[in-house]
Design a protein around this nucleic acid. Structure first.
Lengths: 345, 345
DNA sequence: ATGAAAGCGCTAACAT
DNA sequence: ATGTTAGCGCTTTCAT
């Protein structure tokens, strides 16, 4: 491995001179600068970042904590984050926790020992003891929450307005005349699940409808959850005429359930998803969904951490993005003919 | 930040003693061991990995080079890799290159400067100048190719038998009586594209059919490619009765094309994919596809790099996994009634 | 404008 | 069994 010493020797200067020209710090005559560049060139010298990290206490690397990169939503998010990080000269270390706090703790431990410059948490948990722990032990370490809030903790956050999204989704269905509207959410202690649920309830109430557990199911943000809970909802004697799926994966599961039960979407069942992930355009009919500006959020998050890292101070800022309704083919106006039983008015 | 010095002071021993107990190296009396542990506990001391990396020249981190984590196939692969790496005490730095050699070079540069212990390349390119460059400059650095081979280069590789997969896919279609079989592949210089194509040709030939460019299209391993190329193929007067899609994403595109043209799958068109990704079970009818043992391959790859790293020698080994046919609902026996025009015999 | 030297946090001889 | 010391490859005073 060629080091700064080799370069110094080849260029006939001291290592501090080499360091200076490489970092453009301090004075240096044009001629020695040339010599150094030449030596660097010849030896194909590359500064070791670990040596620099040792001194500067900066590693130019970020930790990214997510539940699972296989989940298409996190794939899109991670891509945006990684791109933006690279743009700013940072690398990202990927950590899949499966929402397991033990695993998360292990990763965190590793990241801290590696001296990462900042951590992006994109986990759904509303009550993360690890985050609190890190905040206590390393109050200086830039941390940012992406996509959810943690109880009793104030950190920089970038969020979608989940309440608004839930409201929009439900409102859309209501406008189409639906009244028996199901909601299938993810983990019950997930920020997204509860906020979207609140929006759902509010929209119903605004239409003088009473939200009822009868039409609400919570499980996970996954296809099979949508499938099983969808089947439950569709097996109801007074089954819903529309379902608000907590995310697109759940919606996909609902499609599958409907297909098996020979219930046609959208004719007999309107379905709306959340996220506008790749899934939305794959299914037939294409899925009406609430778009989360995933890429923008990822980018903004990185910008924020980088800013916190370079300026050395937390802003404890909350940036909220607005979701938008993307209407495709899975929702339509209520067709009374298909109702199994009229809604009791 | 608490360092080994602080621990030494608190435990009233020298730093080398602390180091010894922490690493379980050299002699140490039980009592001092206790003292040290106690101090470590109290101070919540964690060894800095960057200091260790400085000495040991090992960072316990792996670089992973892929085209795009948004691509569901790479999501699955990456998850398996990251899990296994974590199991072995390694972190992985994610690098998305979009198959852009410039970008790849940038990442590589960064990774080398960071002193990563090994690199996993999972890029489709058959002619990667960067890989050759790294091999020349850092012949010691563990590198492994996952999913493709690079021309004129001998490295450790883990592969699927793409030829066999292409053969199986085509054979499956042929057994169902199809003769006008289209092939839509990815980038023409991608290893997977050409090997699968070879398998496709061989199967046709084994059935005394002459492969013809007429039914072959190459583009990218993406949905829109499947869509556009699918439309082309389906617009042919003697359109294919079956299409072998180079991967599941392309197959999804073909579904979309068929839907628009009101061609029913599988009644009027059989479709077979490749990978058995999440997409396969989402579409309706569910996709018949060639399963790549993605997770196994990812795991094996990590095991190999770790072995190379710890044993300090390359094996220049090629591990080949066998693909398997997963039959679902998108392929069926040829139904002559639907043929636009009989195949000239 | 350049060099010498200290030191980042740890490991690994080498002493004792 | 434990302490002293010399680095690892750099950056950064401090001299000159």
């Amino acid at each position: 491995m060629t080091t700064i010493k080799d370069v110094a020797k080849a260029a006939n200067v001291s290592i501090s001179t080499v360091s200076r020209v490489l970092n453009n710090s301090g004075y240096c005559s044009g001629s020695t600068r040339e010599k150094v560049y030449k030596a660097v060139e010849e030896l194909k010298f590359q500064k070791s970042m670990v040596a620099t990290a040792m001194i500067k206490k900066k590693t130019s690397t970020l930790g990214l904590i997510i539940p699972d990169i296989k989940n298409i939503f996190y794939g899109e998010l991670t891509r945006a984050i990684e791109d933006q990080a690279h743009q700013h000269g940072f690398n990202v270390i990927l950590c899949n926790t499966d929402n397991d706090l033990e695993k998360e703790a292990e990763y965190l431990n590793f990241l801290l020992r590696k001296g990462i410059d900042g951590i992006i948490f994109s986990t759904p948990e509303v009550n993360d003891r690890n985050i609190k722990e890190v905040m206590k032990n390393r109050p200086d370490l830039p941390m940012i929450l992406l996509g959810s809030q943690v109880e009793n903790v104030k950190l920089d956050e970038v969020l979608v307005d989940n309440f608004e999204g839930g409201y929009q989704a439900t409102e859309h269905l209501l406008e189409y005349g639906h009244q028996r509207i199901g909601y299938i959410g993810g983990q019950k202690d997930s920020y997204a699940t509860v906020e979207r649920y609140k929006g759902y309830c509010k929209a119903l109430e605004d239409h003088s409808l009473q939200p009822t557990d009868h039409y609400v199911r919570l499980d996970e943000f996954k296809i099979h959850s949508g499938y099983h809970k969808g089947k439950e909802l569709l097996a109801l004697p007074d089954r819903p005429t529309a379902i608000f799926a907590g995310n697109d994966a759940i919606a996909v599961g609902v499609y599958k359930a409907a297909r098996e039960l020979d219930i046609s979407i959208p004719d007999e069942l309107s379905v709306i998803g959340f996220d506008d992930s790749q899934f939305a355009e794959i299914v037939a009919p294409e899925l009406t969904t609430i778009r989360t500006p995933t890429a923008d959020m990822g980018e903004k998050t990185v910008e924020l951490v980088v800013k916190i890292i370079t300026e050395g101070k937390n802003f404890k800022e909350t940036i909220t993005f607005q979701p938008t309704l993307i209407e495709r083919g899975s929702t339509t106006v209520l067709n009374d003919n298909h109702l199994v039983q009229k809604y009791p008015s």
